[in-house]
C-alpha cells in the first residue's frame, strides 16, 4: 500500500465513509414510509448496493487493485447470471395455476395429505 497520505488524512477518510453509511442507513429507515413505497424492495437493495460499494472500496481498500477487482467482478457476474436464469425459470413456471407449490396449502393433513 504505497500511498502518500498522512495518518490524519486516512483517518478522516474512515470517518467520512462512516458518515455516509450512517446517512444511508437513515434513508433505509425512512424510505418505506416516505417515498417510492411501491418499489421498496428495489430501493432497499439499491441502497444496500451503494453501501456495499463504499465498504468494499474504502474499508476494504479495493481501489486500485486491478486483479482483485477483476476477480470480484467475475464472481458477481456469475452470481447475477445464476439469479437471472433462475428468475427466468420461476417466472415462466409451467402450469403454475394448477400446481401446489405456487398456491397456498389449503388442506392441512401433514404427510398423509392427498392430491386432487
Amino acid at each position: 500500500m504505497a500511498n502518500t497520505k498522512t495518518y490524519e488524512e486516512e483517518r478522516l477518510g474512515y470517518y467520512k465513509v462512516l458518515g455516509g453509511l450512517l446517512l444511508l442507513t437513515v434513508v433505509t429507515f425512512i424510505q418505506p414510509t416516505m417515498f417510492l413505497t411501491d418499489a421498496t424492495f428495489g430501493v432497499q437493495m439499491l441502497i444496500g448496493t451503494v453501501k456495499a460499494w463504499m465498504i468494499v472500496m474504502y474499508y476494504m481498500h479495493m481501489k486500485g487493485e486491478k486483479l482483485i477487482t477483476a476477480t470480484v467482478i467475475f464472481a458477481l457476474f456469475l452470481v447475477s447470471f445464476f439469479f437471472v436464469i433462475v428468475m427466468i425459470d420461476v417466472n415462466n413456471f409451467q402450469y403454475g395455476d394448477v400446481s401446489h407449490i405456487t398456491s397456498e396449502i389449503t388442506s392441512a393433513g401433514g404427510s398423509s395429505a392427498s392430491v386432487h
Binding site: 429507515f29 418505506p32 432497499q44 444496500g48 456495499a52 465498504i55
Partner: peptide
C-alpha cells in the same frame, strides 16, 4: 470483519425492510 458487515448490509434490508411499509 468487513465481509461480515457486507453480508449484513444485504441481509438486513432483505429481511427487515421489505415489509416495512
Amino acid at each position: 470483519w468487513d465481509l461480515v458487515h457486507l453480508i449484513w448490509v444485504f441481509v438486513f434490508p432483505y429481511y427487515y425492510m421489505i415489509g416495512a411499509g
